[in-house]
Simulated scan of single mutants.
Amino acid sequence: MKVIKNKTVLMIITFIFVATFAYLSPMGNAFTKPKLIEAQTTSNALEGEFHLDNIVKIYIPSTNGSDPISTDEHNKWVDNAMSHFSIMFGGATSVDGNGAWVDDKGNLIKEKVTIVYSFAQKLNNSKIDDVANYAKQIKEELHQSTVSVEVNGKMYFVE
């Protein structure tokens, strides 16, 4: 192998090597504008079907203050919420779950909770105010510190 003594020739060869590598690099050509690849839209079986863009949820507790309520009383609250949401939004669904939090003494407090939710096409301030007022009613009558309301993925604690 022949040693190159001329620094200028060595610099030119290095520049050509780096420029060629940059041009052929999988990261793209550094000397030209990158090409934009447009997303291709594909259709599916639901394209063009009626859909609802908004979702509203209210969490129905199973306690009156810290005391558990009967299953019948809890079901009345759930039915009332489902009726309320059905009138407001055209329908409602309920899902049973378990809620939990840690009290001031570090104890895990668990309780049954039912989430009543509706999807809505149009969700305006008036309907959100109605849901918040309904949550306040539940809070007062069941002696809760807050009642949870979820709108489009954001959780609100109505006091």
Rank of each mutant, 00 (worst) to 15 (best):
I128H: 03
N125F: 02
A132Y: 14
A132K: 15
A92H: 09
F89G: 08
L123Q: 05
N6S: 05
V147E: 14
V3Q: 09
N98F: 03
T71L: 14
V116A: 05
Y156V: 14
V158G: 01
T42I: 14
G28H: 03
D103G: 11
G48R: 13
V9I: 12
F85R: 01
K110V: 02
T14W: 03
W77N: 13
D103F: 00
L123D: 11
H143S: 12
T93C: 06
G97W: 03
N6R: 05
I60Q: 10
L46V: 02
T146N: 14
S70M: 04
S148I: 13
K33T: 09
V151R: 09
T146R: 07
Y117G: 09
G106E: 06
E111Q: 13
E38F: 07
L24G: 12
E49Q: 15
N29M: 08
N64G: 00
E141H: 10
I13P: 04
S43D: 14
P26N: 00
G106I: 08
G153C: 14
M27Q: 15
N29V: 02
V151G: 11
M82V: 02
N152W: 13
T14I: 04
K112W: 00
L10A: 14
D79M: 08
M27V: 07
I13R: 06
V95A: 00
F21A: 15
F50A: 01
D103Y: 11
S66W: 10
M82D: 06
E111N: 08
S43R: 12
N44H: 15
G91A: 01
V102G: 03
I109L: 00
I109W: 07
M82S: 04
A81W: 00
L10D: 01
H143W: 10
T114H: 10
I60V: 12
K76C: 04
V102C: 03
K76T: 15
W77V: 04
M155T: 13
Q137T: 07
N133W: 01
L52K: 15
K7H: 10
D72I: 15
I58A: 05
I58S: 01
I58K: 06
D79W: 01
G106L: 01
G48M: 03
V95H: 13
S86T: 12
P68T: 11
T32A: 08
S66C: 07
M82G: 05
